[in-house]
Design a protein around this nucleic acid. Structure first.
Lengths: 113, 113
DNA sequence: CACGTATATTCCTTTCGAGGTATATACAAG
DNA sequence: CTTGTATATACCTCGAAAGGAATATACGTG
């Protein structure tokens, strides 16, 4: 389970991350809110911790988990080239629609090129 | 393999997507460029196709695969809340550094609260 | 139609990760 | 020191997905 991508492939882990985005939570709180067995929560938290997605501070017997930004930023960076791609795509669509609007009756106007 | 996240968890699939971001490619081209056995390429392309990441057009015996934006946009949308989180984080860090700069000698200035 | 090329599919095997149950560890309080 | 609470870990089992090898399908050409 090397990569950021594998880490967030697991739905329960994504749920935990989504929960932590608002505020830090103890294991028990996560357990209750997500209705997830405690060992499951602990195991996923371990994975998230070792991958740098979360960090914990000790408060008596509790551990308070909070989000760390780096791995998600890495994911964001991975998306960058594709973002360029799809904005180009939207532009192309807009131009296409513009052309259709400019020349309305041209039924078989020429697909491709 | 339901989710977008599971699809991109596989490194070879990410490589294929990265390759297609510049231009459409035939299966053979992908095979050569990524030095991947042909059945492997075809199987990953199937997964990507069924998940809507790519589409193919037929050109004689070749199939030309190209990227589709939607699933990656979905991923981008999932990231949005976290983006808000980490920009807040950066802001907090900046404010913190500003304060340190303003009051330099205050060694044990008060952790927490 | 036979053949070559391009791609898809099938079958098999192996690996890995997730969940469940039980148990260990850590801390607080009486 | 015993008990209760909070969290972590160990062990086991199961399913799913990836890779390899072989084969099927589709198309073009002589």
């Amino acid at each position: 389970m090397e990569s950021v991508f594998e880490i967030i492939a697991e739905p329960n882990r994504r749920a935990i991350l989504a929960l932590l985005v608002s505020a830090e939570q103890s294991v028990g709180e996560i357990e209750r809110r997500l209705r997830m067995p405690q060992p499951t929560v602990s195991k996923h938290l371990r994975v998230l911790r070792e991958a740098g997605f979360v960090e914990a501070t000790v408060d008596a017997q509790r551990r308070l988990y909070r989000l760390r930004p780096e791995p998600l930023q890495e994911l964001d960076a991975w998306l960058a080239p594709f973002r360029r791609f799809w904005s180009a795509h939207v532009d192309a669509l807009e131009r296409h629609l513009d052309r259709m609007h400019a020349a309305p009756g041209t039924k078989k106007s020429r697909s491709r090129q």
